[in-house]
């Protein structure tokens, strides 16, 4: 999917303005709380963009700023080429928004909810309602009040309501939180389908596997500031070291020998952490697929007999934890280059 993103990137100019283009976007409340600080983001059309961060980091606030639900106190943002302050109504007419909490009218049926949403956006034609009901698998219960639905069904209805007008950009604020795995997979399919059809998606999530599976690009926000912005694989490479576990025959002494051999081979660099264990070696490295075989060769040349070998690749959870942990390492001091700072200090 990343190559897809690259293509979108390359053709973004010919397709018109980016879906999101913010510069120094900030929101400071009257009491001085800085909910969002200096967020500059460009999201090309067609991208599946993931926005991560701990609870209270400013994810929802950023979405509300970009979707005109909150007015920024600093900076600018253009959505689909329209200014969020001066052209608010045009922004609202070109985006869909699915809030973190289920927002459906429980007194109305699924069909009536969708009809209201269609009419609110000036979408005419009954076909669209049936099409959306099919898309989210609610056709069977179209005439049941939404209040009788399960949480998963309400979420799907909610998602459909955000899409009635086929928006160029849709904001999905934790769309799958609280859903069972089956319902979650269903929504994932659905989001991928509309993204394939050209809709730009701005997604926040607490499920890192969700971000990993769906997103072309991820940004991480912490304490109201962007601290990372890259493709999932690049983030994993940069922030989450992988772990090589090598078991050797001969106990502690053999492990010491192996460590010496590894150091002598020049494989241990500044970015690599090597530890000896009771069974052998434990190596944290940013390049496991290169370092692993090289290390094995070096150990064989040194006459160490290897009894076990395992590569444990970084997950986005590692990335996320690395970024969250940065809070204790004084990252905030290096405010001008938040993205680079996050990369270096990890």
């Amino acid at each position: 999917m990343s190559s897809n993103a690259a293509r979108q990137d390359a053709t973004a100019d010919s397709q018109g303005p980016p879906a999101v283009d913010s510069e120094g976007l900030s929101l400071t409340y009257a009491d001085g709380t800085e909910a969002v600080r200096d967020v500059s983001l460009t999201i090309p059309r067609g991208e599946f963009f993931g926005f991560l961060g701990p609870n209270g980091a400013g994810k929802t606030t950023t979405i509300k700023l970009l979707s005109t639900l909150l007015a920024p106190t600093g900076g600018t943002a253009r959505i689909n080429g329209y200014d969020v302050v001066d052209e608010r109504s045009a922004v609202r007419g070109t985006v869909g928004y699915m809030a973190q909490h289920i927002s459906v009218d429980t007194e109305l049926t699924a069909r009536e909810n969708l009809r209201f949403a269609c009419e609110a956006y000036g979408v005419t034609g009954g076909d669209r309602i049936d099409e959306l009901l099919d898309l989210v698998d609610l056709a069977d219960v179209a005439d049941t009040p939404a209040g009788n639905f399960s949480g998963g069904m309400q979420k799907r209805l909610d998602a459909a309501m955000a899409l009635v007008h086929d928006p160029a950009l849709v904001f999905l604020d934790e769309p799958t939180t609280g859903l069972d795995p089956k319902a979650r997979n269903r929504l994932w399919d659905y989001f991928e389908r509309i993204n394939d059809a050209g809709t730009t998606i701005f997604l926040t999530t607490q499920y890192l596997e969700e971000a990993d599976a769906l997103c072309d690009r991820l940004a991480v926000i912490r304490d109201g500031e962007l601290v990372a912005d890259d493709s999932p694989s690049a983030l994993k490479r940069r922030l989450g070291p992988s772990r090589l576990t090598i078991d050797v025959a001969g106990g502690q002494e053999a492990a010491e020998n192996a460590a010496r051999a590894a150091r002598q081979s020049g494989l241990v660099t500044d970015e690599t952490v090597l530890e000896t264990t009771a069974d052998g070696l434990d190596v944290a490295t940013p390049a496991p697929t290169e370092d692993g075989p090289d290390l094995l060769v070096a150990l064989r040349d040194a006459g160490v007999s290897v009894t076990g070998f395992d590569i444990e690749k970084a997950t986005l959870d590692d990335v996320f934890l690395a970024i969250a942990d940065d809070g204790t390492t004084g990252l905030d001091v290096e405010r001008p280059q938040p993205t680079a700072a996050a990369g270096e200090s990890a």
Binding site: Q15, G16, P17, R78, N80, G81, Y82, D83, S89, A90, V91, R92, G93, T94, E119, A120, Y121, G122, V123, H165, P167, A168
Partner: peptide, 15 residues
């Protein structure tokens, strides 16, 4: 930018 953005998506809505 606004001068050179003829292909912005058309906003939905009514009167």
């Amino acid at each position: 930018m606004s001068a050179a953005t003829p292909d912005r998506p058309t906003p939905a809505g009514n009167g």
